[in-house]
């Protein structure tokens, strides 16, 4: 299964980035083989709609779940529309987050965890 973890770096030892829309990297991981691909987030400096576009990246990459810290209302709406579940997991590094995900230890995020950050970089 393919999942994505918002990451501060481009390896499995990097820390989870608590932001979704403006995280440093998306680490796309195959949980069966532990193969991964780091994708530099193109939306870090978007003037607005970073969460929406990041949600779009998730849909284009066909991930089934996102592990992150916080998602804003727009990102949450986008991920829900794409049928992607959002899990909260910010303790530790990427490898640990994947393990926790596989063991079913992470909680699903049921709604936006932050207010709108729209036009943050305006």
């Amino acid at each position: 299964m393919k999942i994505c973890i918002s990451s501060q770096g481009n390896t499995l030892d990097a820390q989870v980035d608590p932001r979704f829309g403006r995280c440093q990297y998306f680490l796309i991981v195959d949980t069966d083989t532990m193969e991964f691909e780091p994708v530099r987030n193109p939306n870090i400096n978007a003037s607005g709609g970073a969460g929406i576009q990041s949600g779009q990246v998730m849909a284009d990459r066909q991930v089934t779940a996102v592990v992150t810290g916080n998602v804003g209302p727009n990102a949450f709406q986008a991920l829900r529309a794409a049928g992607i579940s959002v899990m909260k997991g910010t303790s530790g590094n990427i490898r640990q987050a994947i393990e926790q995900y596989k063991k079913g230890e992470l909680k699903a995020i049921q709604g936006p965890t932050t207010g709108a950050m729209m036009a943050h970089g305006r």
Partner: peptide, 24 residues
């Protein structure tokens, strides 16, 4: 240019969805 539209094609023949974010 303002990321105000998101498009999610449906998986395996399911309907997709279009999201418009009016504030953007």
């Amino acid at each position: 240019a303002y990321n105000a539209i998101a498009i999610f094609p449906g998986k395996e023949n399911a309907r997709g969805s279009v999201l418009v974010f009016p504030h953007l």
